[in-house]
Write a protein that binds this DNA or RNA. Structure first.
Lengths: 253, 253
DNA sequence: ACGCCGCTCGAACACTGTACGAGCGACGGT
DNA sequence: ACCGTCGCTCGTACAGTGTTCGAGCGGCGT
C-alpha cells in the first residue's frame, strides 16, 4: 500500500497493459471502472482487492495480472475521473470564463468522486488525463498573455485553489454524510457546542454572533465562486499592471 | 479505520482524556507526540498502533485507554501540529502582511509534517488549534474591512489555496523523496519521457520548449509566493471596488 | 485487610495487500 | 493429431493491520 515507488519516470503510465492475444475475461478498463464504482459507493476505505474481485465475479488475485499494485489501480482510477472534466473551447470565450469553467468542472468532479481528495495528498496526479487538463489550462493562460514561469504559477494557483477548497468541502460533507442530515441541520445541532466555545475564539465568536442565520447548504457554491472570481481578479490585474509597464518582480514577497 | 463517525458534535474534542488520579506511565500528550515523531519519520503508512506502542515501550493495546481509535489519534496529531503555526500580532501590521504570514506559516507547517495532506481530505480540521488559527484569520479579515459572508469566503479562499498548493507540493516531494535525488535531477531524468509525450500536449509542449532551463527546486517557493500575492490582490481590489460604491453582488458567477 | 478501579497487556478476530505456484484452455508448430 | 508454450485464473499462505475482550496488577480509600 505504501507509495515507496522507484522514481517518477516509471510509474503506471509507462507500464502498458499486458494482454496480447485471446479474449480474456477481465480487462484493465473494466477493473478501473468497477473500482471507481466501488469507490463512489463506499469511499476510499471501502475498496479492497477482494471486494473488487468478487464484484467482478473474479478471484481477488486475478486482478494482479492487469494491475501491478493497489496503488497503481488507484492512480489509474484517479486519472480516469480526471478525464471527466469538460473543457470548454479555448478560442470561443475569453480566458476568464475558460479558466472559470475548468475550475468549476474540476470542483464538480471532485465532489462527484470525493475519494480523490484522499489521493491528491499522496501522489501527484500525472496521468494522461491530468496532463491533458493541465495542457488546456496552460493554453488558456498563454493566450491570456502570461509567459514563462508566470504560466506555471498562474495555472498552479488556479488548480491549487480548486483542490484545496474542494478537499475541505468534501471533508466537511463526508463528516456530516453518515448522519443523514443536511448541513443546516448539523449546524443547528452544533449550535450549543459552538456557543459554548465561542468565548475562547473572540473574532470567530463575534462573527458568529452576527451571522447566525447563515445558510450552510447554499454557502458552499457561493464560497467557491467568490474565491475563483477574486483569484481571477488578482491574475488579471497583475497582467494589466505588467502591460502598463510596472516593474516586473513576479511577486516575490 | 473508516471515518463513519456519529456526528460532528461528538468528535474527539468532546471526549476528554480519561485519567483522574495516580501517575500512569502513559499520557495522551505523550502518545500524540510520539505519533507525530513516527509520522514525520515514516509517513502516514508508517504509523501503526503496534509500532507506536513499542516505541513507547508499551503494549500496543494500552494506547486504547487514552485514545478511542486510530482515527482519533490522527485527528489529535493533526490539531497538535496545527498549533505550530506562528501567528503574527494582528494590530502591528497591515492585513496583507498578516494574512500572508499565516499563509506562509501554514505552508511551512504542512511541508514540515507532510503527512497532514493525507488527512485534510478525510476529516475537516476542527480541533482547538485549527479553530484558533481560523479565529485569527477571521480577526485579520474583519479588521481589513470584510464583513458578513465575505469574511468566511475570504478566509476560506486563503486557507484553501495554502492547503491545495502545499498538498500538491508535498505530493510531488514525496514522489521524488525515495530516490534521494533533488527535484532538478529528477526533472533531468524525466526529460526524455517528457519530450516523448510533449507532442500529445501541444500547449504544454510549447511552454516546455521555451522553459527547459527552469529551476525546479527554487520554483516552489516563488510559485507559492506568487499565488498568495495574486490572491491578496484579488481580495484587496474587491474591497476597494466595494468601498468605491460599485454594486454589491459578492461575486456570484 | 478488603475491594474498588485506573491502568496494562496478551490473545484472538476479522480483515488487509500481495507472492507464489499449480492449473486450465487455446493456439502454433511439427 | 499431438505437444509445448503461454496468457490467464485463482487457492493458498504470509505478514501485517485496527480493535475487542478479559484477565491481571498495584495503589488508594475505607
Amino acid at each position: 500500500m505504501s507509495s515507496n515507488a522507484d522514481s517518477v519516470a516509471n510509474s503506471v503510465w509507462n507500464r502498458p497493459p499486458r494482454s496480447r492475444g485471446g479474449q480474456p475475461t477481465l480487462s484493465r478498463e473494466q477493473i478501473v471502472r468497477a473500482a471507481i464504482e466501488l469507490l463512489d459507493e463506499k469511499g476510499l476505505d471501502g475498496l479492497s482487492m477482494r471486494r473488487l474481485g468478487s464484484r467482478l465475479a473474479a478471484g481477488a488475485t486475478s486482478l494482479y495480472w492487469y494491475v501491478a499494485t493497489k496503488d497503481d489501480l488507484l492512480e489509474l482510477a484517479l486519472d480516469e475521473v480526471m478525464g471527466e472534466i469538460e473543457i470548454p473551447d479555448t478560442d470561443a470565450a475569453d480566458w476568464r470564463t475558460a479558466a472559470s469553467a475548468v475550475a468549476h468542472g474540476l470542483r464538480a468532479m471532485i465532489l462527484r468522486h470525493s475519494w480523490v481528495t484522499g489521493l491528491f495528498g499522496i501522489r501527484p496526479a500525472m496521468g494522461p488525463n491530468a496532463m491533458g487538463t493541465s495542457d488546456r489550462v496552460v493554453g488558456v493562460l498563454t493566450d491570456a498573455g502570461f509567459s514563462g514561469m508566470e504560466v506555471a504559477y498562474a495555472s498552479s494557483l488556479l488548480m491549487s485553489h480548486v483542490i484545496g477548497s474542494a478537499t475541505t468541502e468534501a471533508a466537511w460533507r463526508r463528516s456530516i454524510a453518515p448522519s443523514g442530515k443536511t448541513a443546516n441541520e448539523v449546524v443547528e445541532e452544533m449550535r450549543p457546542y459552538i456557543d459554548q466555545v465561542a468565548s475562547r475564539y473572540p473574532n470567530y465568536g463575534a462573527w458568529w454572533e452576527e451571522n447566525k442565520a447563515l445558510d450552510a447548504d447554499a454557502m458552499q457554491d457561493d464560497n467557491f465562486a467568490f474565491g475563483v472570481e477574486r483569484l481571477l481578479d488578482g491574475l488579471q490585474s497583475w497582467l494589466e499592471r505588467r502591460d502598463a509597464g510596472d516593474r516586473h518582480d513576479a511577486g516575490r514577497a
